[in-house]
Amino acid sequence: MIRGTGWTFIWLGMYLMGFVAYQLWFTNFLTARDQSALAAGLDEHFQEVVVEEVEYTPVFVPGATTTTVPAAGPESVPKILLQESASEVGEAFGTLRIAAIELDVAMVEGVRRRDLKKGPGHLSGSPLPGQPGNAVVSGHRTTYGAPFGDIGELVPGDRIEVETALGVHVYEVREPPDRCRDEEGLCVVKPTDLWVTEPLEGAWLTLTTCHPKFSARQRLIVFAELVAGPNAEVILGL
């Protein structure tokens, strides 16, 4: 009886140690392998992407306040926006660079479980980075390379660069809205708070990850606004 109980605890201990090793080490190895493959294929992807010129239609959100300059009036010449074709879900479409937290990773299209194992994933259905509206990108915080492990350290003004086939889109982190700001100044929401993915006026990049670390109970959100890039002049009305 005692021997059986002892063996049960030994197996349980081995199972839990295996779990910790798998989550904190092996998943990183898997993601590093995928990232190498994605990065290697990005140049080829950039050459294959179809870039179109489309008429710029500003995103209008009733009642919203924005820091961007309003788009030109209807009497002015239509503005032309560069738009790239969407990638297949699960394929890399760009690179995310955040110098403040020493992040430089390939991003994939889609936020399925298997997409996010490769790297940060773009929410299909939200605009691509560099386009008007709210581009949403999700990423792991503690496992699978933890690409968003340190995004809680970002402060307003920090720069985020997203390189796609169009070029480098530069965003600046903005203050979180009052409705989600906690005592530490972070934007923390429930996993069901869909408002963070809703369209915004101008061009925004919204990063989402789990919160607190080692828990999927809540979401940490970082909002960043486009300040420079191939489409910035058109969207910001400069």
């Binding site: 199972y15 295996g18 779990f19 798998y22 989550q23 998943t27 936020v111 479980r113 996010l116 994933g121 929410l123 949403v136 999700s138 990423g139 792991h140 915080r141 503690t142 496992t143 699978y144 933890a146 968003f148 929401v189 996993p191 069901t192 708070d193 869909l194 963070v196 993915t197 989402t208 990850t209 789990c210 080692f214 828990s215 999927a216 979401r219 940490l220 959100i221």
Partner: peptide, 21 residues
């Protein structure tokens, strides 16, 4: 089975940070 259970349990640690998915 063990790896599958690690994946399922791992979602409680870090599910990828998606909102509304």
């Amino acid at each position: 089975l063990v790896i599958w259970s690690y994946e399922v349990l791992g979602d409680f640690l870090d599910s990828g940070g998606t909102v509304g998915e």
